[in-house]
Design a protein around this nucleic acid. Structure first.
Lengths: 339, 339
DNA sequence: GATATGCATGAGTAAATGGCATGCAAAAGA
DNA sequence: TCTTTTGCATGCCATTTACTCATGCATATC
């Protein structure tokens, strides 16, 4: 027996183990907890074993393809949640005192509401003490003057600048409520069937967004002469999508902005293969950081997070790749809703 | 930029970092915090850098040979302490629900009060949820019958049993209050000077502990005929030591039991070299675990801790080794009391 | 009977963590 | 004034930790 070495000192469970436990206990699944925490099922399984060994208590009852909490696990859950909360409060307090500032982000209203804000809640959870303000105003050009730290713009790379970070490109394809597909009186089985439907589009009197127009898409599909049942125009893209989800027409889906709706099944993409090529390959979503904010660690963390979220989306497409689908393990396959 | 990998997920500070911070902030020293946590100064230094990076805040102001907390550090301290407490509460709660039982320890009253209990407070801090009961009753022989999980006995190895764990041996030498050494009217510079002093001893009418008698020690010192100024006898060894600390006489110090008092300077050992050889090399302090408790993880942890504490004492002796002192880095060198 | 699915685990690897040795700089001691 | 002491920082390296990949197992579902 040697003298004390650091490895011999009994340790308290790490925050990582608690976070794993909280997710696994809430979801009752190591697999899904892993997905939420960007870990493999194997890693979560081992974490829970390690935690149980440290505590000297069994937290989960392993059934086949199901987990249940033991009495000790149920007792641990609120305490673990409290310990996590105490730590986040801890971190938040010190960052406040250290004078960390809010992070100002500018993007279009549509990008904000359809892509950024739904994801920011997770960012906030993983980054206590950070105060992110989203300005749904893409007209801002002078970031320094207007007090913006990070801007997200859909533009050519030359416009974004060499320091900008590319998130993802975009392509467009028709999307509609699954109810429209179920309508036998007005079929929507092939592109020509669009003549039976109302086409929804964003107002563009100056033709500033040609790639977003039905005209362009129909030309691409060889249907330049098609006369639809009607046309509706909207000033805001998210309003257009809401109408589409409600089943009142067919919209041109912007891939990034419709991704969540496709995933949830609120929208379907019957002709996704047409137009898979980027509608305007010169443009993409870019992250532009104001020069004076580049050295801020919180800004760097935020930009890093944006890139990872964007990459995550690209690895798990919402619609099957038209050139060749993945195998049965495709993560995008829709799960049955859980009770 | 790749998709999410576990290493990319922002992490909350670990409990190890918080514990390091709490100790460094309380002691205002990385070196002493390291000693307390069984880490090197280097490790604590790096931990604090890592913590500051994770938080994005400076917690310490490094001065030469001194630390001060920054405002952020002062703000972090109570929050960190609360997070540590929340975690310990967390661990304790789950262990209670899991039905962990108290751990019953038996030892002599003197060993309990002079060695074990002072150290148990640290054990308790490092092992939340464990309930250790100390029975200062060494007459217990049948551990199973008497509900004792662990016994600590000073006995020959054969009596302890092959499964017992040896902690340390013992040797005895005179100890006295430093005030006695300062008394010029009654010098205590050489062993013969003991004739000027009251000798303190444990009652032993049956001669059961010959190695603890002044007679034995004086014979060893070649002073068999020495007539002291007086003799006092006590039933309890810790009472004897209290009187010695108060300066009323010279006691025979049992090495393990006087170690803390020597370290604190309350007692000094003017003739430690005489008698350095174990008074009775056949005996030593042993840990004996009741057979039915051997499989308990909490009991195993406790025994492991006992061994490490004992080894720690052996590595940092309270008095310089009579055969050859260590260098100037000897950890036992007494520090000036801090303000 | 075949397939799907979620937990457990062997093996491999990259990153994290800690110790050793040393540098640096200023306070303390001679 | 010079020497010694002391505590924080850091290069380097070894060991441990933590995660991924691949696969096995067992049972529910089709």
């Amino acid at each position: 027996m040697s003298k004390w070495h650091a490895k011999d000192v009994p340790r308290l469970p790490s925050m990582d183990l608690l976070r794993g436990f909280e997710a696994a206990a809430r979801l009752l699944s190591f697999t899904r907890a892993g997905e939420e925490l960007h870990l493999t099922q194997s890693a979560v399984s081992r974490q829970m074993r390690e935690l149980e060994e440290q505590l000297g208590a069994t937290l989960f009852e392993r059934r086949h393809r199901a987990l249940a909490l033991t009495e000790a696990g149920r007792a641990f859950y609120p305490a673990a949640a409290q310990a996590l909360a105490a730590m986040r409060e801890c971190v938040q307090r010190v960052r406040q005192v250290a004078g960390l500032r809010a992070l100002m982000v500018s993007s279009t209203a549509s990008f904000a509401s359809l892509w950024l804000v739904p994801r920011l809640t997770r960012f906030a959870g993983e980054n206590p003490g950070m105060d992110v303000h989203v300005s749904a105003n893409a007209r801002i050009q002078d970031l320094d003057r207007d007090g913006v730290d990070v801007a997200i713009r859909y533009c050519p790379p030359a416009m974004a600048g060499t320091a900008a970070v590319r998130l993802f490109g975009e392509h467009v394809f028709p999307v509609a409520s699954p109810r429209l597909l179920a309508d036998t009186k007005r079929p929507l089985r092939e592109p020509a069937d669009l003549r039976h439907h109302v086409l929804l589009a964003v107002e563009d009197p100056e033709g500033a967004y040609p790639w977003l127009s039905w005209g362009s898409w129909l030309e691409l599909a060889g249907l330049g002469d098609l006369k639809p049942a009607g046309r509706l125009h909207f000033t805001e893209y998210d309003q257009l999508l809401r109408v589409s989800r409600d089943g009142y027409g067919v919209a041109l889906g912007r891939s990034a902005l419709v991704r969540d709706a496709l995933r949830s099944g609120e929208l379907v993409a019957p002709f996704a293969a047409i137009g898979h090529r980027a509608a305007d390959s010169s443009r993409a979503y870019h992250v532009i950081v104001a020069p004076r904010a580049r050295a801020r660690p919180d800004v760097q963390r935020f930009v890093d997070w944006l890139q990872r979220e964007a990459a995550q989306d690209e690895y798990a497409p919402a619609v099957e790749d038209a050139e060749g689908g993945r195998g049965s393990k495709d993560g995008a396959r829709k799960r049955k809703p859980r009770p």
